[in-house]
Design a binder for these strands. Structure first.
Lengths: 254, 254
DNA sequence: CTTATCGGTTTGTCCGACAAAGCTAGATTT
DNA sequence: AAATCTAGCTTTGTCGGACAAACCGATAAG
């Protein structure tokens, strides 16, 4: 064998991958727009000249990647990758990498503060109405940790939406998916926890309405610091998210 | 038919999905550790009692999700989802959602500042050595926009790594993948652009070494503001990333 | 000790088939 | 004529079996 090979490994991507790539190209280039049909499996079989099993493997790849989906009648169509579907996989990755709540907290602090700053600058009346609706519902379930935790997650999601920054929305989602499920156990474990949470939301929304960035940031920080204090009463910030979930969150649900 | 149905649609996930879910569960809760073999397709066929085509569709789903991969000999094994593989999907999603460079810039500013703060607090000697190595190589190619752009992206990646915060590393990657490819055209288009970039990196690294957070943040902001000024000379911040890439980045490469 | 050879596995692909669910259009009822 | 029903066609999800190419391990030959 020559010291330097004359030919480099010729890379024959498997057929199902080529099928997936070909369809992906059409979508990413915009030749197939979101919502438009891709065609039936049989049509793809004819167009690509491969077996239906092969086509189906390619379809699974794209489906999991969020580029195509099946509509109500299971026909294939292109779609815009939904953030939270992708974020779910990222959250899973974070768990497997055994990140700690300290990392999660630090990053969420950064991203939530950025969210509120954006929201103060650019929230529309609709955004504010949505936040107000959330606040109202939260106030009504202040004694119910499970419902309140869900509404808390929604509040922060709406705040990110109000920032009108989709990159930020996307960036915060994986961390948020891991961060906010803990709210339930924290609110439940601290007396007055629910009331403090709603109070903080009220101040944040007020700051957004008055376009008062300083107040918005201040109350967001306080709100998250509250979370942190509550968390440290029941678990260590430096243990992995995975272990903590195993012991507290999942345990509580059984 | 009764006005309100007595039973709601029972949701039978397709078999390939159940296969994927079952394997995913084993990996996520640690019964199969990264690197461990999953078994051959035939074994999975026997264990799940479904057809091989069905198993293969499930495998595609997990493979695309980054939870399993095939080693050199194509045997299946569990693996840790690689951030940047997932980040690629997210970047694609951002393009399809037609985000603007303004959103990208704003979020990157937030995340890079958070990175440098973390790096100032927690960078190890190894991190600093890596950054110093990058700086040295950058200084050597200051006149070559393409190489310099690549090293710039690496510098910021190393900075995130030095923050010791994996959640932050993950959160910044999708934006970074879209943000930094533009550096080349900016450095190339502004006289002294390369020198200013290296100078900024030098100050940032210096601040990290001296644990001077204020200076680190200051120079990171300046560095990104430079990028922004350069960018605005050649394109609008408010146009979508997709269109801008079409016109500038891809065009320049042909 | 290296090279060559040869089964046995495993993957990637193909073919053909069928039940269940959805859709369509003609037939039937009101 | 409009609404409803029904039967047939289409499409998906799943299955069984098949085969070539690549890979692995071990044994035989140089």
């Amino acid at each position: 064998m020559p010291a330097t090979p004359l030919f480099r490994r010729i890379d024959v991507a498997p057929a199902y991958q080529k099928v997936a790539d070909a369809i992906e190209r059409e979508i990413v280039n915009g030749r197939i727009k979101p919502g438009e049909p891709i065609g039936t499996e049989q049509q793809l079989v004819e167009q690509f000249g491969v077996n239906r099993s092969t086509v189906r493997e390619g379809i699974r790849v794209l489906e999991e990647g969020g580029l195509i989906r099946r509509d109500s009648s299971r026909r294939l169509q292109a779609c815009l990758p939904r953030y939270n579907k992708l974020a779910t996989r990222l959250s899973r990755a974070l768990i497997l990498h055994e990140v700690t709540f300290r990392e999660l907290f630090e990053t969420s602090m950064t991203l939530e503060v950025a969210s509120v700053e954006g929201a103060v600058e650019r929230a529309t009346d609709d955004n504010i109405a949505e936040l107000a609706g959330n606040l109202e519902r939260s106030a009504a379930v202040v004694g119910n940790p499970a419902d309140l935790a869900e509404l808390d997650a929604e509040f922060h999601l709406l705040m990110a939406k109000a920032s009108q920054n989709r990159v930020l929305q996307l960036a915060r989602e994986p961390a948020a998916q891991l961060f906010f499920p803990t709210t339930e156990m924290i609110v439940g474990g601290v007396p007055e926890g629910g009331a403090r949470l709603v109070e903080a939301h009220r101040h944040i929304l007020d700051a957004i309405t008055r376009r008062d960035k300083e107040a918005g940031v201040l109350w967001t920080r306080r709100h998250l610091q509250d979370w942190r204090r509550g968390f440290e009463k029941i678990a260590s910030l430096d243990r992995s998210v995975e272990h903590t979930y195993m012991e507290h969150v999942y345990a509580a649900r059984q």
